[in-house]
Amino acid sequence: MTAATSRKPLIEVKDLHKSFGSLEVLKGINVTVGEGEVVTVIGPSGSGKSTFLRCLNKLEEPTSGTIIFEGVDLTASTTKIDEVRQRIGMVFQHFNLFPHMTAAENIRLAPVELKRASKAEAQAQAVALLERVQLADKVDTRPAKLSGGQKQRVAIARALAMKPDVMLFDEATSALDPEMVGEVLAVIRQLATEGMTMVIVTHEMGFAREVSDRVLFMAEGVIVEQGTPSEIFGSPKEARTQDFLAKVL
């Protein structure tokens, strides 16, 4: 199993283990994500995809192993995780928008709190980002008045406001009604074409095949197989990969 890439490495994961109590969810993950690379992670439920993704910005504390991001070891106790997270954007399955704030307030919260921008600058940026995700008319709308697809696009804009070096998508379309999946995927697709480094956990096989530079297939806490979309979807080598794809395609 090789992390075949010629790009400059942005994230290097070495022998990552994660246990919840006696249950070992990640059993030694080794993978490198290069700059500008789009990596999708597929696999059956309970395979550890989301846990792996959440370890990358330390929403989950790894049990052992190292995660090097832009040359900094996230698992070192001296690392200031809040500073690192400013460069790692994350989008959640359930959006997690702040319900007491408007779309623009959601987006400008972090830049203003972290002194990246004045309130006026952050507002201008928020409006620009909302235009970018086709929601220019929802600047002052609260999340409760938005559809699922709209919420997720605001959540993406919120993550982008910190100008991250990488975006993590944790099943970003799983909680959406089918007719709204497309509008979210369109935004992600656009980010891909703009050269954003992304790690995407998804059940949308067609989208993974279309947008990925590389696909990781995970099962039972390990990366079973990885390769280009055509390798994984066209001629999977491992039996577990074949079984899984046979079921979902």
Binding site: D82, R85, L109, A110
Partner: peptide, 9 residues
């Protein structure tokens, strides 16, 4: 989590 993921303490 959403707030922490943005880098807020």
């Amino acid at each position: 989590e959403a707030s922490r993921s943005l880098g807020l303490n």
